[in-house]
Design a binder for these strands. Structure first.
Lengths: 128, 128
DNA sequence: CCTTGACTTGGAGTTAACTCTAAGTGGTAC
DNA sequence: GTACCACTTAGAGTTAACTCCAAGTCAAGG
């Protein structure tokens, strides 16, 4: 699969895919005879994983570290799990903050709703 | 209240508080005789509101627009509500994405957990 | 054969949101 | 009265994560 197809399928721009590879976030992708990237299934899964994690705001630096440990093999399993646990903790904390913000937004929206209704009633009274 | 106290209480750095004021995200704060900012209760509430919204990732540009509408008075109520509704929608969408990431993290962590257990069992077998 | 279009590279440019610096002022403790 | 510390300003610098650019290569279609 060529980079443009991967980009379309994954929603990650070709520039970003090359960038991820350059900085080592994705291991080097195989090339065809003329030097063009040919993504295989494993590459695709890596892209999907990175995309999911980046969507949630996990920093590239942490993901790079994780990917490097994966390359190093089986005796990094505990370290990898530790990274994921820490990120999970931070993500959950962030989501709690966001829930608070969501609640505040809902409250403010409802306050504005009554203000709008009041305004409309005033207009109706003018009309009648 | 001086900027350092507001910073400590709100968890927003003094530099950032001045920056917010400079770009108009917070209306000008009153100064004492020698030109030093003296935050009142309303200022504090504004800071808290901005902090909450920024924590959840709402962009400064949107918040500035909202704050400007507030300054303009009562006939911007519908526009303000529209902004909040749109941001609420985007925030909820983001939280759903994050929930997916959280689920994936939990799954991966559990997979690593079994891998770690297997490893430990192998060690025990070596010992006995 | 020549054009077209997708790909390649290294490196420069952009964006959002701070964060820091330098130079200066003003009130307070010793 | 002088040393100190928090404050002030305008503007420069930083960081993360892309995003774009110029110049070049290659396979396929007309």
């Amino acid at each position: 699969m060529k980079i443009s197809e991967v980009s379309e399928q994954s929603g990650v721009s070709a520039d970003t895919l090359r960038y991820y590879e350059r900085i080592g976030l994705i291991p080097p992708v195989n090339r065809n005879g003329s030097g063009i990237r040919d993504y295989n299934d494993i590459d695709m899964k890596r892209v999907a994983f990175i995309k999911c994690m980046r969507n949630a705001g996990l920093p590239i630096e942490v993901l790079s570290e994780y990917v490097e440990l994966v390359q190093q093999g089986d005796n990094t399993i505990e370290a990898r799990q530790e990274i994921l646990k820490e990120q999970r903790r931070q993500l959950a904390a962030k989501m709690e903050e966001m829930q608070e913000t969501l609640d505040l937004l809902d409250y403010k929206i409802s306050v504005y709703e009554s203000a709008v209704l009041k305004k409309e009633q005033a207009i109706i009274q003018l009309e009648t």
